[in-house]
């Protein structure tokens, strides 16, 4: 199979259209199942009480706020090096979903911090670097929108996305490098998770659901972007679903 076959808007547009319903159905099933285990089956936490249940939305949102930024920067690099227009469209389509998850991670974090730390917000390294991530997403989208010429706005915002990727390892390791009020990671590659199996299971199912949701929404958005940019082409005007 030739993978480059799907690197043009004309071939990618129908492929994305076919994938979206499956991804959306998978996301819905996983999120409902994750909510069922997390909210109805899993027991309470002996230290934090039921406030801990915010973990089921907070951690997946925070993971994808970082992961989507790295993927966005990856597409920005592809765009700049291969001059591939679909890569720029992908990068542009990832930003709003990444920004949304960053916002969700910050707000649900505040609603978790208030009952457990006694404060909605503290300027510790984890929270501050995550806030910078939100500003990077907003900066990327603003720059993209501020330049009328599409090729220039794609290139300028791609450079911003690539420079900003340095912030992601800072967020991830902030709880190790600095003394933060935010707790350290409960899941990492070198040791077994420091949480109950059922809580971990529900959280991972939610994360998988958020992942499928992200891919589905990004593919929907990239189709809208293709429609905007290829409006005067024959293939799109003759396209029938």
């Amino acid at each position: 199979m030739n993978l480059f076959k799907y690197s043009s808007p004309q071939t990618f547009y129908p492929l994305a259209g076919k994938l979206i319903p499956w991804l959306a159905a998978g996301a819905a099933i996983l999120i409902v199942y994750g909510l069922y285990i997390g909210l109805l089956v899993a027991p309470t936490d002996f230290q934090q009480g039921d406030a801990y249940r915010i973990i089921y939305v907070h951690v997946p949102a925070a993971w994808f706020s970082m992961f989507l930024y790295v993927v966005m920067a990856g597409y920005a690099i592809l765009g700049l090096t291969l001059n591939a227009k679909l890569s720029y469209m992908m990068a542009k389509s990832i930003a709003p979903t990444g920004a949304m998850f960053t916002f969700v991670a910050l707000v649900t974090g505040a609603f978790w911090g208030k009952p457990t730390w006694g404060a909605w917000w503290v300027w510790d390294a984890r929270l501050t670097s995550e806030l910078i991530l939100l500003f990077l997403y907003i900066g990327y989208m603003s720059l993209q929108a501020a330049i009328d010429d599409t090729r220039r706005s794609d290139r300028a915002s791609a450079i911003l996305a690539i420079v900003g990727v340095i912030n992601v390892p800072i967020i991830y390791f902030s709880v190790k490098w600095w003394n933060t009020l935010h707790q350290g990671s409960s899941i990492n590659l070198t040791s077994s998770p420091s949480m109950a199996a059922i809580i971990l299971k529900a959280m991972l199912i939610m994360a998988l659901g958020f992942w499928l949701y992200s891919v589905a929404v990004i593919l929907i958005r990239v189709r809208r972007e293709i429609e905007d940019r290829e409006r005067n082409t024959a293939w799109l005007n003759e396209f029938k679903e």
């Binding site: 309470t44 009480g49 039921d50 406030a51 249940r53 915010i54 939305v57 907070h58 949102a61 707000v107």
Partner: peptide, 16 residues
Amino acid sequence: QMGGYGLYVWVSFGIT
């Protein structure tokens, strides 16, 4: 009621 944390939990899920 979520053991008294209902407001925090439900607002978090609602906003998400």
